[in-house]
């Protein structure tokens, strides 16, 4: 039995790393955007379009990293559109986000048809598990560089928001736009840049899906990772570090269903497969009332008014 427990633990550990990366990247991008008081609900569109563009680029040029770059560029452009429209008066940023989700997904499916069949060169992993003789350990420790990029970014973002002038500008814009304007900050420009940067990360998250794990382009590639990751930001209470934990939790619990079935526990697999959602909801119900939460909300954020 301890073998079985070890297997499930390893699967969840490996799953946490493999499955969490797209959640982590989208969540970090959205954290940056939301810290400026703007919400972009449309990152699912960036993710799907990014996945398609990355795959198509990698297929046409033979270079997966060029694909990642192209996905980042696509995500930036799409979200810059969001940021630009939201500058206009009387425009609802939540609605514009959903509009861009539709547009991004539509464009991805429209232009993505010819790339469902072919096999594109994929991103390599760094093999960190060669010290172990256990193939499962080796497998779990095959880690894509983008995961480390995500971790590093979380730390940098956390540090930047806390300690730098930019961080101060972003936080001030997000907490009280009027005060920021009084300080001479161009609120619209800060939000535009933050939204575009967030969008590029969501594009990269898409590239991770199509070029690494599961490493293929098709129309059901994303099962709502982009939308869920935006929700995880609220769950993580706008902290880049907590985004890491939230994404890891989501990835690990997502691996639970298949892992339990692999040791022969398959009754009620729909609920094991829904574990990430159930677990997140439980944690939110248990933790949301805390006094701390209220302080961490960017004051200008429309969705948590």
């Amino acid at each position: 039995m301890s073998d079985a427990v070890f297997m499930v633990m390893m699967a969840m550990f490996g799953g946490a790393i493999r499955v969490s990366t797209p959640f982590l990247l989208v969540a970090l991008g959205e954290t940056l955007t939301e810290k400026t008081g703007r919400i972009n609900l449309g990152l699912e569109g960036n993710l799907v379009l990014g996945a398609m563009v990355a795959y198509a680029t990698s297929y046409s040029t033979g270079s997966p990293w060029l694909g990642v770059l192209a996905a980042a560029g696509t995500g930036t452009v799409l979200s810059a559109g969001h940021g630009w429209i939201c500058k206009l008066p009387k425009v609802n940023d939540i609605a514009v986000g959903i509009a861009f989700m539709t547009l991004g997904t539509g464009l991805a499916f429209f232009f993505g048809k010819p790339f469902i069949q072919p096999t594109a060169p994929r991103l390599d992993a760094i093999e960190l598990g060669n010290w172990s003789s256990n193939p499962q350990v080796q497998q779990a420790l095959k880690i894509n560089p983008l995961f480390f990029v995500g971790l590093a970014l979380a730390v940098v973002l956390w540090w930047m928001l806390k300690n730098t002038r930019w961080g101060l500008i972003i936080r001030m814009t997000g907490d009280n736009a009027a005060a920021a304007r009084a300080m001479g900050i161009s609120v619209d420009r800060v939000r535009l840049v933050a939204t575009a940067a967030g969008g590029s990360l969501a594009g990269i998250a898409g590239a991770f899906l199509s070029l690494y794990y599961p490493g293929s382009w098709n129309e059901s590639l994303s099962s709502g990772q982009g939308l869920m990751a935006v929700a995880l930001v609220i769950f993580a209470r706008w902290s880049p570090i907590r985004c890491v934990w939230a994404a890891l939790l989501f990835g690990a619990s997502g691996a639970l269903g298949p892992a339990l079935q692999s040791i022969g526990i398959s009754k009620g697999y729909y609920f094991f497969n829904a574990a990430p959602y159930i677990l997140t909801l439980i944690i939110m119900v248990l933790s949301a009332r805390s006094q701390k939460a209220a302080h961490e909300v960017p004051g200008e954020l429309s969705i948590v008014k």
Binding site: M10, R18, S220, A255, P258, A259, S262
Partner: peptide
């Protein structure tokens, strides 16, 4: 056998494949 619960869900299919190989 591992059931994914969906006719097409690539991430879970990849997870299931990995879980089977690990087993």
């Amino acid at each position: 056998v591992i059931f994914t619960g969906s006719w097409s869900m690539p991430v879970r299919e990849a997870e299931a494949t990995n879980a089977l190989i690990d087993a």
